[in-house]
Design a protein around this nucleic acid. Structure first.
Length: 563
RNA sequence: GCGCCUGUAGCUCAGUUGGAUAGAGCAACGGACUUCUAAUCCGUGUGCCAGGGGUUCGACUCCCUUCAGGCGCACCA
């Protein structure tokens, strides 16, 4: 039963307002003692030309006793509803247990496909901490959409094309160490790439050589292509090791190179629509009507640019997947680029341009280190993950030295802690990465949530078989009711996360659940409680574990069984 | 110069179509383990919500403006 909807139905029958509209207005009061749902009467006041508190009072008097409502009372301009706790508790626990990992599902996405372009590292460049945001926000959004019934196409738009490959071929021929390339491909490719830039400062001829190699690559020279393919394959192999740790998968690795033969059509379309304008030797689309700088589509030397490829990619995705939404998870530094891209699509007459979405995020900053590839001074994601696991291992030795599979727990907890720090706040903010905060497992943290699950599971193991039935009417404490309310609202948070493209809504919600369970846990015995209470609390514990596990999965964090 | 983002407690941050006394975590201090994993729980307090105007019955929220920081502003991606 959807309690919110039921209450909305009651309100709707009393006032002249659609149930949907009532649902939108309804809130959860700031304090539990004010009720479980609140309906603000301020909007009605305008229509009815009556004071909000009068309306609330009149409505409160009209609300009749109802199976799911204990009472309704007016408080200022609010009409507050108190649910019949018994009915609500029983229904919610039952629903969670029945639906299992499907709990929180919503049919909003049925029959719709979302394409999501995320992670998208550059071939032959290290996968550094800056790539974490796109990878993990995209990975999480993908799982959230899927939970809501959408079909999702996960696209890794690799940076596998461009003049840097000319440089790389040049550098490869001059300085590569084949042994090192086998062992640590990206490391070696980075080394020679950095060396290229150092040498090029004193030897401008290198730049020309690189351009020549890139031309060969474009012209289909066999040797050049073979090298490029090797760089690409070696890179993907390394990336996949990292993705495996983060539980991220892709349906497509169609990167920039995939669209090189699909740009001609785009340019023809732009020509047909007379959108291309000559400017300083280059060809641009004028976007001044949108108050945007012009979008350069063809360079003065006649070659294409990334926007050209992105245009081709968007059209390809529409044709191939017929997306409901076409999402790009890329840093906010690229806001202008995407704004231009979407506006050009609009000018081209594609009505689906409105379905293209840029999900931006802030920069990852280190207090003292820089993140420039050219200087070779990067913080590798692998290093961060490994260090987190190591630090977690040390903590396990200290807290739970008898743990059986320490490595497994250390991996799940350590990596979970890193992911959590990336998904706990608003995307727009820059992340200042500090080990101190990431490895602090007290309070709001991945390990805090995981630990709650582990404690719950520990109890369930000790209890043995979960009793088939339980009488939930014995769950009468505030701690229990508050906890169950949070379980009941889980689906709303998943939906909100999807609508706002903000995984942190889920992160915060499951943290709230963990907090509420820990409070319940410390105040109420489970295994030692009287039989009927014990059974009901075991069911509740199982329900909490289910929801936490589902929630963590949605933010790409694994749940250990022991820690 | 123009555009976008950010500015809330000592620190890191929630606070979403304007609404109830502006909330969490960390840090600090004090308490709770013969009892289900103390990676837990309980208690103690601090805010000219960056400043100034405006709209409104009501503004952290909307508008204008100033300041501070970040990121962009065509032949890299």
């Amino acid at each position: 039963m959807d309690f919110k909807k039921e209450v909305a139905g009651i309100i709707s029958s009393l006032v002249d307002m659609e149930v949907e509209k009532v649902m939108e207005l309804m809130e959860v009061p700031p304090h539990a003692n004010m009720g479980d749902y609140a309906f603000p009467c301020f909007q009605l006041a305008k229509v009815m030309r009556k004071a909000p508190n009068m309306i609330a009072a009149e409505l409160a008097a009209k609300v009749q006793t109802h199976a799911i409502i204990e009472k309704a009372e007016a408080a200022g301009g609010y009409l507050n509803f108190f649910l019949n706790k018994n009915v609500f508790i029983g229904d919610t626990i039952k629903r969670v247990l029945e639906q299992g990992e499907k709990y929180g599902y919503n049919s909003m996405g049925e029959g719709k496909t979302i394409t999501i372009d995320f992670s998208s590292p550059n071939v032959a460049k290290p996968f550094h901490i800056g790539h974490m945001s796109s990878t993990i926000i995209g990975g999480s959004m993908e799982k959230i959409f899927r939970h809501l019934g959408f079909k999702v196409e996960r696209i890794n738009h690799l940076g596998d094309y461009g003049t840097q490959f000319g440089k790389l071929i040049s550098a490869y021929k001059r300085w590569v160490d084949h042994e090192a390339l086998e062992k640590e491909p990206i490391n070696e490719l980075l080394r020679i790439y950095v060396k290229f830039h150092e040498e090029a400062e004193n030897n401008p001829e290198l730049e020309n050589e690189a351009r020549a190699y890139f031309k060969q690559l474009e012209d289909g020279d066999k040797e050049a292509i073979a090298l490029w393919e090797r760089f690409r394959a070696l890179s993907i192999k390394e990336f996949e090791q990292t993705y495996k740790k983060l539980h991220i998968e892709f349906d497509s690795y169609a990167g920039e190179s995939f669209y090189t033969d699909k740009m001609g059509e785009i340019i023809d379309m732009l020509e047909d629509k007379k959108l291309l304008v000559e400017s300083n030797g280059a060809r641009i689309v004028d976007l001044s009507e949108f108050n945007l700088p012009p979008c350069l589509v063809i360079k003065s030397d006649g070659t294409t640019i990334y926007v050209t490829r992105d245009l081709a990619a968007a059209l390809y995705r529409k044709r191939t997947y017929d997306f409901h939404k076409n999402i790009y998870v890329v840093g906010t530094t690229q806001s202008l680029h995407f704004s231009q891209l979407f506006h050009v699509l609009k000018l081209m007459g594609f009505e689906w341009a409105k379905d293209c979405v840029h999900i931006g995020f802030g920069l990852v900053k280190f207090p003292d280190r820089k993140l420039s590839t050219r200087k070779g001074d990067v913080v590798l994601l692998e290093e961060v993950l490994d260090e987190a696991v190591q630090r977690t291992m040390a903590l396990i030795e200290q807290k739970n030295p008898d743990l059986k599979d320490k490595e497994d727990a250390a991996k799940k907890v350590g990596i979970g802690a890193v992911i959590y720090t990336f998904l706990k706040n608003n995307r727009d903010r820059d992340i200042v990465f500090s080990w101190e905060d990431t490895i602090n497992f007290d309070g709001d943290s991945g390990p805090y949530v995981q630990y709650t699950y582990v404690r719950g599971k520990s109890i369930l193991r000790r209890a043995g078989q979960l009793p088939e039935t339980a009488d939930y009417s014995v769950l009468t404490s505030d701690d229990e009711f508050n906890l169950i309310k949070l379980l009941g609202a889980f689906g709303d948070s998943v939906k909100e996360a999807a609508e706002r493209y903000e995984p942190f809504v889920v992160t915060r919600h499951i943290t709230e659940i963990a907090k509420a369970y820990n409070k319940f846990y410390i105040n109420h015995p489970i295994l030692n409680a009287e039989e009927s209470i014990k059974n009901a609390r075991l069911h509740l514990t199982q329900a909490v574990c289910n929801v936490i596990k589902t929630g963590l999965k949605l933010i790409c964090i694994e749940t250990p069984e022991y820690m």
